[in-house]
């Protein structure tokens, strides 16, 4: 099975910890994409919580339009997934 190719952009704490601006990965769902983040960036091993969801200190936005929290959400080729720190305040 071939998964679509998507790009994960990293901002804030995720970028600082991973030391990269973006990752290009194959992922069929948001959950697959998070698994790729963990595999490629050990410093972001805490991005997935024990129950398999996105950990609360992170946010995901799909193409900068919608925030997504469902790890089963399917992705399409060319999607850009933004991985952000969750607290916007300050």
């Amino acid at each position: 099975m071939t998964f679509p190719t998507i790009t994960i952009e990293l901002y804030g704490m995720p970028r600082a910890r991973a030391g990269v601006r973006e990752l290009v990965v194959s992922a069929g769902t948001v959950g697959d994409a998070l698994a790729e983040v963990v595999a490629n960036c050990p410093a972001l091993a805490d991005v997935v919580s024990a129950d398999g969801r996105l950990a609360s200190q992170y946010l995901l936005s799909l193409d900068g339009k919608h925030f997504v929290s469902n790890v089963l959400q399917p992705l399409q080729s060319g999607d850009r997934l933004l991985l952000l720190s969750s607290d916007a305040g300050g």
Partner: peptide, 23 residues
């Protein structure tokens, strides 16, 4: 813990690039 990691590691200035990406 993780709930305050952003403030410790980068501070509030990390908002800028995120906000920029989100228009």
């Amino acid at each position: 813990g993780p709930a305050t990691a952003k403030y410790r590691e980068l501070g509030t200035v990390s908002n800028l690039l995120t906000f920029n990406r989100l228009h």
